[in-house]
Amino acid sequence: MNWTLEVVIVPVSDVDRAKAFYAERLGFAVDHDTKVGDDVHIVQLTPPGSGCSIVVGKGLTDMAPGSLRGLQLVVSDLHAARARLVERGVEVSEIQVLGENPNPEPDPLDNVGFVFFNDPDGNGWAVQQISARG
């Protein structure tokens, strides 16, 4: 039996600002934007190629906006991903190498190369390079 992670709720203070950040700056697809009265607003967004989506909204969680840390995206080319984030206006860290890569071929950044950024509320994201999965 597979247990797939499908959705992660990201706590935000301003749904429209979060939707614009994730869709326009990060390039996530807007799967749906649903208002259920004045107290509930749900926006689901999915990173390109991902099987897991995020949900931002109003009336969804009691987590404080900006309190989520450790969300992680994986890309095959960290240099290209960082360049895209920078050109879209995302404040992103320089590439950092965390740990020692036991298999530095074909790329020494595989598994150990990361960049970090926050959304407008301060929710913390990492982007890791993994160019091939074994």
Score class of each variant (00 low, 15 high):
residue 1 M to G: 15
residue 2 N to K: 09
residue 2 N to F: 10
residue 7 V to H: 07
residue 11 P to M: 05
residue 12 V to A: 03
residue 12 V to N: 03
residue 16 D to C: 03
residue 16 D to V: 12
residue 21 F to C: 03
residue 26 L to F: 08
residue 30 V to A: 13
residue 30 V to I: 12
residue 31 D to I: 11
residue 32 H to D: 10
residue 36 V to K: 08
residue 36 V to T: 11
residue 36 V to P: 00
residue 38 D to E: 09
residue 38 D to V: 01
residue 40 V to E: 05
residue 40 V to F: 05
residue 41 H to W: 14
residue 41 H to Y: 06
residue 41 H to F: 04
residue 42 I to L: 10
residue 44 Q to W: 03
residue 45 L to Y: 01
residue 48 P to F: 07
residue 48 P to V: 10
residue 48 P to M: 04
residue 49 G to C: 02
residue 49 G to Q: 04
residue 54 I to C: 00
residue 55 V to C: 12
residue 56 V to Y: 04
residue 56 V to M: 07
residue 57 G to D: 07
residue 66 G to T: 00
residue 70 G to C: 00
residue 70 G to E: 01
residue 73 L to N: 07
residue 75 V to G: 00
residue 75 V to C: 14
residue 78 L to C: 01
residue 80 A to L: 12
residue 82 R to D: 07
residue 82 R to N: 05
residue 84 R to T: 14
residue 85 L to R: 00
residue 86 V to S: 08
residue 90 V to F: 10
residue 90 V to S: 09
residue 91 E to Q: 12
residue 92 V to R: 04
residue 92 V to W: 03
residue 93 S to Q: 08
residue 95 I to H: 03
residue 98 L to P: 10
residue 100 E to L: 01
residue 102 P to L: 02
residue 103 N to W: 09
residue 103 N to K: 07
residue 104 P to C: 07
residue 104 P to K: 08
residue 113 G to M: 05
residue 113 G to P: 04
residue 114 F to W: 11
residue 114 F to S: 05
residue 117 F to Y: 13
residue 117 F to W: 14
residue 120 P to A: 05
residue 120 P to Y: 06
residue 120 P to Q: 09
residue 122 G to D: 03
residue 124 G to D: 06
residue 132 A to Q: 14
residue 133 R to I: 15
residue 134 G to T: 14
